Simulated scan of single mutants.
Amino acid sequence: MYVSNHLSLVEEQRQHVDSIAERTAQFLAAGGTIYQGKSPSINPPPPHRSTKIDPETILKRRKPPITAAERKVLRKLAEAL
């Protein structure tokens, strides 16, 4: 048997549930209608990226790796020392 730890919380909110149900019934009896709209998407689209480029921003670019030819030259220089 399962006993919820939140049972007292459920019972505390019972008066609000009854009140909402009563007001909903009054609204419908007075000729009101309930419209159930489309549910929102779970993940909203990301914000649009700005096309503005700040001229003061210094772009940090990665230097290209050393080529095999440059590596050979460095080895020859190191051996000469």
Rank of each mutant, 00 (worst) to 15 (best):
H48N: 09
N43A: 08
G32D: 00
P45N: 05
I53Y: 05
R71D: 06
H6F: 08
P40F: 05
A21P: 01
R75C: 05
G32S: 07
I66C: 00
A68E: 13
R71F: 13
F27N: 00
P44C: 04
L74S: 06
R23C: 00
E12R: 10
P46R: 12
A80V: 04
L74K: 15
A80T: 07
V73S: 10
R14A: 15
E70V: 02
A21W: 09
I58H: 07
Y35D: 02
S41E: 12
L77Y: 03
L81A: 08
G37N: 05
A29W: 04
R75P: 00
D54W: 07
A68N: 10
I20R: 06
K60L: 07
P44V: 05
V17E: 04
R62G: 01
A68S: 14
R49L: 10
T67S: 13
H6R: 11
E79Y: 10
Q26L: 02
T57Q: 12
P55Y: 03
P64H: 11
A69R: 14
L77R: 15
P46G: 06
Y35H: 15
T51S: 07
P44G: 03
S39R: 13
H48V: 10
T51V: 03
M1R: 14
H16T: 09
E79S: 12
R23S: 03
Q26A: 12
L77Q: 11
R71L: 09
E56V: 02
E12G: 05
A29S: 13
H16Q: 15
Q13N: 11
A21D: 03
Q15E: 11
I42N: 09
L9W: 06
L81T: 09
R49K: 11
H48P: 00
D18Q: 07
A68R: 10
R61S: 02
H48W: 00
R23F: 01
Y2F: 15
A78Y: 12
K38F: 05
R75H: 06
H6N: 15
H48Y: 03
I20P: 01
A29D: 11
K72T: 07
G32I: 00
V17G: 03
K60C: 00
K60S: 10
S50L: 09
H6P: 01
G31Y: 04
S19F: 14
S39A: 15
E22A: 15
T24S: 08
K60R: 14
K63T: 04
L59F: 12
S8G: 02
L74D: 04
A78L: 14
I66A: 00
R23D: 02
D54R: 08
K60G: 01
I53F: 07
V73I: 13
A68H: 12
F27C: 01
R49D: 02
T51W: 06
K72C: 00
T24E: 05
R14K: 11
V10H: 08
P47M: 07
I66S: 01
S19E: 15
L7G: 02
Q13A: 12
Q26P: 01
A25V: 11
V3F: 14
E56T: 11
R62Y: 02
E12V: 04
K38T: 10
H16S: 09
I20A: 14
L28Y: 02
T67A: 03
Q26R: 13
